[in-house]
């Protein structure tokens, strides 16, 4: 077959050839061997390099607006009754807004610092700048990356407990797979009865404890802590509390719903643990 004839065939079947590749590429892209999201490639870093500064700016603007609005509403009544002080109030308002924000931030950071000292951990503080693009998955993006010493699989926590683990990084940002994500799995122990299990994401605000046997002693209100197995999370960090237990009359397992210790709807700052002692952490009191 001559090249001219080949070209003729390609032109004739152009549509089907393109269609074939459009179907083939997604099939090749699906990784059936792993449940994990993929690593960044060089062109991914370029795209994230474009979006992450925008995300940082939008988050900062939103935070400032919400903070300013809250403080303005707070002071509104006072202003009405103190007309004489109006001008002074206006001058002070900006200062108060900044101070309140700083105070609140201070309080949060102080708690993070106390957590860090209690657990004797090397950590980096980061701010949450974005959430997952869809409602199907629940990753977050933070404003610290490789240049701050952040690496894949580093645990991410707050003073309340475990947030998740880093699953990919760029120079300035890192993506964190939260404990609420469908693909997340954290090995845990029920603090009271020492029953073991695995926490996996379930819905937008609750997780599920898997592999809990019917005979296992689990009650609503039980605190779940990380077991330290797998080497990603330090042992003894709070993961969540049992919110619901359902035992069916048949089967070998029971359904255990878990409310995470971290309030993901109010998550602003997190700690990335860059190094923790290999021996079990003695504290299990972060409740």
């Amino acid at each position: 077959m001559g090249s001219a004839q080949m070209l003729k065939y390609i032109r004739e079947y152009r549509f089907y050839i393109i269609l074939f590749f459009f179907i083939l590429l997604p099939v090749l892209a699906i990784d059936t061997s792993t449940r994990s999201p993929r690593e960044y490639r060089f062109y991914d870093r370029v795209i994230v390099g474009v979006t992450s500064p925008v995300q940082v700016v939008i988050t900062w603007v939103l935070d400032s607006c919400v903070s300013a609005y809250n403080n303005y509403v707070y002071l509104w009544e006072t202003r009405k009754h103190n007309e004489d002080l109006l001008n002074e109030n206006r001058k002070l308002l900006t200062t108060i807004v900044n101070l309140r924000e700083t105070q609140e931030e201070n309080r949060r950071l102080r708690r993070l610092l106390s957590f860090k000292e209690d657990f004797k951990l090397d950590t980096v503080v980061a701010r949450v700048i974005a959430r997952d693009v869809t409602t199907e998955f629940r990753a977050i993006r933070i404003n610290r990356g490789e240049s701050h010493g952040i690496q894949k699989d580093m645990p991410v926590v707050t003073s309340s407990g475990i947030v998740g683990r880093v699953f990919r990084t760029t120079n300035k940002t890192a993506d964190v797979i939260t404990v609420l994500d469908l693909l997340s799995a954290v090995d845990i122990i029920v603090k009271r009865s020492r029953v073991r299990g695995i926490i996996e994401g379930f819905t937008e605000d609750v997780a599920q404890m898997k592999f809990a046997l019917r005979t296992d002693d689990i009650l609503p209100g039980d605190l779940l802590i990380s077991s330290g197995l797998g080497g990603i999370f330090p042992k003894g960090v709070s993961v969540g509390r049992v919110s619901k237990v359902q035992k069916k009359p048949y089967g070998i397992s029971q359904f255990v719903e878990v409310e995470p210790s971290v309030d993901f709807s109010r998550l602003e700052e997190v700690l990335i643990i860059t190094r923790f002692p290999s021996s079990p952490v003695h504290l299990e009191t972060i409740e």
Partner: peptide, 19 residues
């Protein structure tokens, strides 16, 4: 591709669904 790197979605799911 843009969706995939802004999500923890499983590899290729966005390629398959959007296509």
């Amino acid at each position: 591709e843009i969706a995939e790197i802004h999500s923890s979605g499983i590899q290729g799911v966005f390629f398959a669904t959007y296509m």
